[in-house]
Amino acid sequence: MFKLTPAAAEQVLKAAKQGGTEGMCLRLAAGQNPDGSIDYRMGFDDLTEDDIRLTSEGVELVIAPEFVPLLDQTTMDYVELEPGQFHFIFLNPKDPNYHPPTEN
Rank of each mutant, 00 (worst) to 15 (best):
P93W: 11
Q18T: 10
L71Q: 06
T74C: 09
Y78D: 00
N92P: 00
V59G: 08
L61M: 03
Q73H: 04
M1Y: 04
E66N: 02
F67T: 03
P69T: 06
V62L: 13
K3P: 00
V79G: 02
I89N: 01
L47F: 08
P83A: 12
G36N: 10
G23F: 08
L70K: 03
L54N: 01
S37N: 12
A64I: 01
A64K: 09
G20V: 06
L71M: 06
P65M: 02
K17E: 14
T102W: 01
G84E: 11
G36R: 09
A30Y: 06
M1N: 00
A8N: 03
P83Y: 02
L47D: 09
P65T: 09
G20I: 09
G43E: 14
I38T: 13
V12Y: 10
R27S: 13
I52D: 05
Q11F: 05
I89K: 03
E82M: 05
L71R: 02
I38V: 15
P6V: 05
Q73E: 09
F67E: 00
A16D: 06
M76Y: 01
D72F: 02
D95A: 13
V68L: 10
T21W: 10
K3Q: 14
P69R: 02
M1F: 06
P69G: 02
N97M: 13
L47H: 04
D50A: 13
G58P: 02
A16N: 10
P100R: 05
V12Q: 10
T75L: 07
F90Y: 15
T55P: 00
P93S: 09
P69Q: 00
E66G: 00
F86N: 08
L47K: 15
E57W: 04
F2L: 14
D50S: 12
D45C: 13
L13H: 03
P83W: 00
P69C: 03
I52V: 14
S37K: 06
T74N: 04
N92E: 08
E80A: 10
T75K: 04
P34H: 10
N92R: 05
D46H: 15
L81H: 01
L13R: 13
L91K: 07
I89L: 09
D35A: 03
Y40H: 10
E10S: 09
E57H: 07
I52M: 11
V12E: 12
I52W: 11
E10T: 05
R53D: 01
T48D: 15
P34Q: 12
R53L: 06
L4T: 09
A16P: 00
E66A: 07
V59N: 07
F2P: 03
A30P: 03
G23Y: 05
D45G: 13
A15I: 14
A9E: 05
T102K: 07
V79M: 09
K94L: 14
N92S: 14
P93V: 13
V68I: 00
